[in-house]
Simulated scan of single mutants.
Amino acid sequence: PRSFIAELLCEQLAPWIEDPDGVTSVLDLCTGSGCLAIFAAHAFPKARVDAIDISPDALAVAARNVADYHLAERIRLIESDVFAALGKERYDLIVSNPPYVKAESMRSLPAEYRREPELALASGDDGLELTRAILAAARQRLRPNGLLVVEIGHNREELEAAFPDTAFTWLDTTAGDQYVFLLSREELP
């Protein structure tokens, strides 16, 4: 996986999650190939994991990967536009590596990235369109004391400017501390 969230899941999101066995429900929003859902299932062995994507093609790839890891009984794949198909489900943890490429950057992506569907990369003029949608609805989708972890690429300054009253916790990854944020349910805007 290319997501920095994967390395954080390998550490069970310590120290923010003190009891990994206490995590019983995880949502991987914008799952793509399902890699973060699989990492989450391994990191939190007592959790049921929902993996959502808007793309049927991505979910087909995720289904193969989930089957390869023998996790079909614990990971449920759902076709949905963000939270739309979830009903009233609530989670202990939501992770997301949503599309976050700015419109200007989309026009100059290297050939390697242009092989990906645009739907998997583009997120409006400033790269935050999907992140805004996640932040707007995540509070209603998290259980008390639940956590939201989102990767946003190179958009930290734009995100902090768009949400100046939100106390983002920036998680340290191998690439630095500007790509993945964490918010508790209570800290969400």
Rank of each mutant, 00 (worst) to 15 (best):
T31P: 13
H42W: 11
T169I: 00
W170E: 06
T173W: 07
A60K: 03
F4A: 01
S80C: 06
L119H: 12
K46G: 02
Y100Q: 09
T31H: 07
V180W: 07
Q12E: 06
R115T: 08
P110K: 09
G124W: 06
W170A: 08
L142N: 04
S3I: 15
R74P: 07
D177T: 09
K102E: 15
P20I: 06
P164D: 14
V149K: 00
F44L: 08
P189V: 13
P15I: 06
E151S: 06
C35H: 13
I94G: 15
I75K: 07
L183H: 07
G176K: 00
N97W: 12
Q178A: 02
N155R: 00
E151G: 05
A137M: 02
V101T: 06
P99I: 03
L27H: 10
L135V: 01
D125F: 04
E104Q: 04
N97A: 08
A120W: 08
N65K: 09
I94E: 06
E151V: 14
R139P: 01
F44A: 01
C10Y: 12
I54F: 01
I94W: 04
A167L: 14
A85H: 09
Q178N: 04
Y69H: 11
P110W: 12
T24R: 15
V61F: 10
I78E: 08
L130E: 14
W170S: 01
D172R: 12
A175Y: 09
R156D: 06
F44Y: 04
V49D: 04
C30W: 11
I5A: 14
D28Q: 05
W16L: 01
L171A: 13
A60N: 05
D125E: 15
E79Y: 15
L29V: 03
S105I: 13
L119V: 07
D68L: 11
P99R: 12
L109H: 08
E73G: 03
L128S: 01
I78A: 10
V180L: 00
R143W: 11
S105E: 15
I17S: 10
G87P: 02
N65G: 02
E79R: 10
A111D: 11
I75V: 15
V101D: 07
P15E: 02
K102R: 05
P144Y: 04
A63T: 01
R48S: 00
V26G: 07
A67D: 11
A175R: 08
D125N: 09
V26T: 11
I38A: 09
S55N: 11
I152K: 07
L130D: 14
A60P: 13
V95F: 11
I78M: 03
P1G: 12
V180Q: 02
L188R: 00
A67L: 08
P117G: 05
D81A: 07
D50F: 03
I17L: 10
V82R: 12
R141N: 00
P45Y: 00
D21C: 06
D81R: 13
I54T: 03
A84V: 15
N155C: 10
D126Q: 01
Y113P: 13
G124V: 11
N65L: 04
E18M: 10
Y91T: 12
E73C: 14
T131F: 04
F181T: 02
E186T: 08
A67C: 00
A162W: 09
T24L: 14
A51G: 09
F168H: 03
R2D: 10
R132F: 08
A111S: 13
A41I: 05
H70L: 06
R74Y: 09
R143D: 14
S108I: 03
D53P: 04
R64W: 06
A162F: 13
A137Y: 08
